[in-house]
Design a protein around this nucleic acid. Structure first.
Lengths: 230, 230
DNA sequence: GAATTCGGAGCTGCATACAGTTTTGAGGGC
DNA sequence: GCCCTCAAAACTGTATGCAGCTCCGAATTC
């Protein structure tokens, strides 16, 4: 009977999802009263959750004007991808130098077990979830919780674009999503061999490959967010 | 007469400073009522500011128990230093590849102008402010606002330890603080020469040198926070 | 004396109310 | 038609009140 999860937490989770999915359009002003009604909470806990999301970069805030959705521009997305490179490459570096062999083997094993599912999946949502899970586990190998925390935040804000990107690739490939496990495998092999340079450069080129497609994905994202209007 | 800065912002700034300086002791529970009286605001804006600081990692939060100061452990500080390396090295990389010559020259110039002040300053606070300013400007050269944002956050949380570290060095050197501009100069020279490898490795060793002293600084920080009790 | 129970004080969680600011749009001048 | 003006509507900023949870210490039991 004790409420284990507070209202603020519930509202926060819901808002984070909404913000990640651009349920609010870029730069759109957020109406607190309306939103509080939708979420079934008063403005007080709602605003607490909104403030957290501002600090995390999902929303912006202007005095006496309230909360706004973060903007969506090519340069903003570029910045996020570039920051991801910084964080993930350093995480790989640490994984190479100090991750226990067992943990590395476990990640390799995870990759093997997921392989069939990865190859057969066509749903971009599922693919992205698996991809994010892999990268999160990889960050865990670094043994550095700050790097994990930052990566989680960056991935949340970049998520929508990655989804668009995957959908675009699926559509171009004719319904078949790209099961690009080779890059992941290459990274893990580099770590297992404790070959820092190889692993880091594999990671760098893996992310940068995606980054290069991002501009186009942003363009599509824009059209999806503004044209259909539901 | 229009209030340009809101109460929340004012409270937030005050709290951030307090949290950075460990005006709250590690893991200490924060009493909202008492704090709101000290800060001259009601609990509503106070809690909004506290929620931002939770999202930024300055504080933690437990359901129905409220807000707590972040812990202070060697491994936590290590994580922050390691994340700094990741962020700053990547920033240097971008500075090498794409910062305008003029901006690089401006930073070198800034370094030259600050040199006398840096050499003569004995106040650790002032030294740290100059050091942080240099690193922030360097991050600006990357042209990536996410990297700047993350660095600003990391520096805020690591600040107290760096201050302890500087004080320790001053005391050991007999009142003379260490005007280590050579490392900074080396980094900027590397960038100016567009020598990515040299600049990055200079940055890496610069930060890691400090990181190695951090464990000892944490020990001192602990004694300062718990023994004098005022 | 140590462990346990329990009641109350104190604190947090949240809804609500209202003051102050921004936005909107109707009306009027050009 | 276009651009001001200005007052009402709408929204944000913050204080306050109360319900419910947590915590502490006195009383009780062993």
């Amino acid at each position: 009977m004790a409420k284990r999860e507070s209202n603020v937490d519930r509202v926060y989770e819901a808002l984070r999802r909404m913000a990640a999915d651009f349920a609010f359009k870029p730069d759109q002003r957020i109406n607190e009263s309306a939103l509080s009604e939708v979420l079934g909470a008063s403005r007080t806990p709602l605003r607490e959750a909104l403030n957290r999301l501002v600090a995390e970069g999902f929303l912006t805030f202007q005095n006496n004007r309230g909360f706004f959705c973060r903007p969506l521009t090519p340069s903003y997305i570029m910045d996020l991808y570039e920051a991801r490179v910084a964080v993930e490459c350093e995480a790989v570096r640490f994984a190479c130098t100090r991750a226990p062999d067992d943990d590395i083997a476990a990640l390799a094993d995870y990759l093997n077990r997921m392989e069939p599912e990865y190859q057969s999946a066509t749903d971009p949502e599922a693919l992205l979830a698996m991809d994010e899970s892999f990268h999160a586990r990889l960050a865990q190998l670094s043994g550095n919780s700050e790097l994990q925390r930052i990566l989680n935040n960056l991935n949340g804000r970049i998520r929508y674009i990655r989804l668009i990107d995957l959908k675009r690739m699926r559509d171009r490939a004719g319904g078949k999503a790209p099961g690009d496990t080779s890059a992941h495998r290459q990274i893990v092999e580099g770590i297992a061999a404790r070959d820092t340079e190889a692993a880091v450069s594999a990671m760098r080129s893996h992310i940068e490959k995606r980054r290069e497609e991002a501009t186009e994905a942003v363009r599509i994202a824009f059209s999806q967010l503004y044209v259909p209007d539901e």
